[in-house]
């Protein structure tokens, strides 16, 4: 019991077919941050916490070497951090009118790349991922099949990330795998 086995929902399963590569990102520390992000105080606290300008337009994300901050809603952000989630959460909670929850294991993150990426996502999502509509730096919560997902665009090549709840991860992965043959 000294070395407890850590698992991810897909146990790092991968897809590597013509035009599509899918990898599970493993254990990503994730914190759900809440607060009045329109307020000066809130933004200042967040800037100090993450060391970057954290003012976000709706459905965009921002990142530096240690953190990625996604817009989820007017008073909600998702933070991926290299830091210890408990202590980052506690520091955030110190700011007034805020909340933070460690949700590292609530979901997993799939990285999709390759020429078929957009067609694979379009097979399950009514959200338009055409580069003119969803560029690098944008993120969105939407539907993939019957799973709620957080999609983000990380490179034009293209590289997308899809965050999906633990219990839906197998479903989403199988979905991607099946349509990879069809597009």
């Amino acid at each position: 019991m000294d070395n407890p086995v850590k698992a991810t929902p897909l146990e790092m399963a991968a897809i590597d077919v013509d035009g599509l590569t899918v990898a599970e990102l493993g254990l990503v520390n994730k914190i759900n941050l809440r607060g009045d992000f329109d307020s000066q105080a809130c933004n200042a606290a967040l800037t100090e916490l993450l060391g970057m300008d954290c003012r976000l337009e709706a459905n965009t994300y921002v990142s530096n070497s240690a953190s990625t901050l996604f817009w989820l809603g007017p008073n909600e952000r998702m933070l991926y951090t290299d830091g210890d989630p408990q202590s980052v959460a506690e520091r955030w909670r110190a700011a007034p009118g805020t909340a933070a929850v460690d949700v590292s294991d609530y979901s997993t993150v799939l990285r999709l790349s390759g020429a078929k990426t957009r067609d694979v996502i379009a097979s399950g999502s009514p959200f338009d991922v055409h580069p003119q509509h969803f560029g690098v730096g944008q993120c969105t919560q939407t539907r993939f099949g019957n799973a709620s997902v957080l999609l983000s665009n990380h490179a034009d090549t293209p590289v997308f990330q899809m965050q999906v709840r633990w219990s839906f991860a197998r479903y989403a992965f199988d979905y991607i795998k099946r349509v990879a043959d069809y597009v």
């Binding site: 008073n75 909340a99 929850v101 460690d102 949700v103 294991d105 609530y106």
Partner: peptide, 12 residues
């Protein structure tokens, strides 16, 4: 009201 609800069903 200052209340924040977050689903943590799969966290645990």
């Amino acid at each position: 009201w200052e209340v924040y609800c977050t689903s943590v069903t799969e966290q645990w």
